[in-house]
């Protein structure tokens, strides 16, 4: 087993995951340095979303280790992992559709008990996402996709996480909102929150990421700094299913 570098906030080491007989991850190793944005790229059925589930404890790997701030997450339940300081912006946002926008955002602070600070953070979210101010008492399910993404991000920030994991944050959004979301991710990151995001849209993701990994049928086929990967022709090969050695 390789040891994760000491500055890694989150590290997956030699993770092997199975759904029944089918192997999803083959010796997957990923590390997210403190304060960085790390992006996991890959096409359909590459095992991206399962990586998210592994980090959040929704799926348990058969072997390997997942550490956060040096401590293993493997024995922990999802709520316990969230309490360690990881917040999630799930795929397709997954808001609580019948609860109000305010309730949704406050649900993000479920693990906290400091009422006054929570109220302050809610105000902070409204400066970060000004559009949500008029929507607070509306049903979350009635918002547009872009607005829902804002709520999901605000909800994740409310737990004051050290790291946010995002599953395809730009999926299904209009181009205008895509730019807005990427900008917000950068802002969040500049305030000291590490970000691990899963994306299909490589060119967009590489614009804001520090490092990136390319996942293909459960194996990391490419990794490095985002700047270097941006011009790498192998990115395209990975997406189009080209051979690993290409």
């Amino acid at each position: 087993m390789t040891n994760s570098p000491p500055d890694a906030l989150l590290a997956l080491t030699n993770v092997n995951t199975f759904y029944g007989q089918a192997q999803v991850h083959f010796d997957l190793s990923i590390s997210v340095p403190r304060g960085h944005i790390v992006c996991l790229l890959g096409g359909n059925a590459s095992g991206k979303s399962t990586t998210m589930k592994i980090i959040l404890g929704l799926v348990k790997p058969r072997s390997g280790d997942v550490t956060f701030d040096g401590a293993s997450l493997l024995g922990l339940s999802t709520p316990q992992i969230v309490r360690r300081g990881i917040a999630s912006v799930p795929e397709a946002r997954r808001l609580f559709a019948d609860m109000s926008v305010r309730e949704n955002i406050l649900m993000g602070a479920f693990v906290r008990n400091d009422r006054e600070a929570i109220a302050q953070d809610l105000d902070k979210m409204l400066t970060l996402f000004p559009k949500l101010g008029q929507r607070l008492s509306q049903r979350a399910g009635s918002l547009s996709g872009g607005e829902q993404q804002m709520v999901a991000m605000a909800r994740a920030l409310m737990s004051r996480p050290r790291m946010i994991v995002m599953d395809e944050p730009t999926m299904g959004l209009s181009p205008l909102y895509v730019d807005r979301v990427l900008e917000l991710i950068r802002t969040i990151n500049q305030e000291g929150v590490s970000v691990f995001m899963v994306e299909q849209n490589a060119s967009l993701a590489l614009e804001i990421a520090h490092e990136a990994y390319v996942l293909q049928t459960g194996k990391i086929v490419l990794s490095g700094s985002a700047r270097a990967l941006k011009d790498d022709p192998r990115i395209r090969d990975a997406y189009l299913g080209g051979s690993e050695a290409a």
């Binding site: 339940s77 999802t78 709520p79 969230v82 309490r83 917040a87 997954r94 019948d98 309730e103 737990s159």
Partner: peptide
């Protein structure tokens, strides 16, 4: 708080867990 957790779980169990709901 528990009431909120119940409502959130009823609407989306996985998402509720990701908010830290036991």
């Amino acid at each position: 708080k528990l009431g909120w957790a119940i409502r959130a779980t009823a609407q989306d169990r996985d998402a509720a867990m990701q908010m830290g709901v036991d």
